[in-house]
Design a protein around this nucleic acid. Structure first.
Length: 146
DNA sequence: CGGGTTTGACCAGCGC
DNA sequence: GCGCTGGTCAAACCCG
């Protein structure tokens, strides 16, 4: 629960993209397909973007992210933040920026696949979805626990 | 003291 | 060939 009275950063309607193409799908529909977004995250390409309605750009997905840069892109008045997985040998990158048209939406793009386990996922976090290098790092339902 | 964040500068790729 | 844009690095700083 945050100061906005909403316990979660994720909306009922989720949009994401894979392999460069944005897709829009209802969260319920995504989960109904089985695995939801997580299934998409398991793709070899490892490029998945999320567009979520949240006030905070940083969402704890179980990994430790180290910010390594920020940039103001021409196409958007907002700043784009660049994060990298703090784990050594894990070259997963994360790009976070606010939507140009809807500032209360946050575009999060994951680039790469984690090759390690989520730190401290067994304690405060229920059921880490991570099991294999090509498996999704987390599940959609887990994200909703925020 | 360690790790993470910050910020500007640098570099590479692409388009014109 | 030049300019622009986006992406990354690295040193300094701040916080826990």
């Amino acid at each position: 629960m945050n100061m906005y009275g909403r316990s979660v950063v994720f909306p009922m309607t989720a949009s994401y993209y894979c392999d460069g193409a944005w897709m829009f799908e209802d969260d319920a529909a995504a989960r109904a397909r089985g695995g939801g977004i997580g299934a998409m995250a398991g793709r070899p390409s490892g490029r998945i973007g999320f567009r979520t309605r949240s006030e905070v750009e940083v969402m704890d997905d179980g990994f430790r992210w180290r910010k390594y840069g920020k940039k103001a892109v021409k196409s958007s008045p907002n700043l784009r933040n660049y994060y990298r997985c703090s784990a050594e040998g894990c070259g997963v990158k994360k790009r976070v920026e606010r939507d140009r048209d809807d500032p209360l939406y946050v575009l999060t793009t994951y680039d790469g696949v984690h090759n390690h386990v989520t730190p401290g996922s067994t304690s405060s976090r229920a059921a880490p979805a991570y099991s294999a290098p090509t498996a999704p790092a987390w599940t959609w339902s887990e994200l909703q626990n925020h």
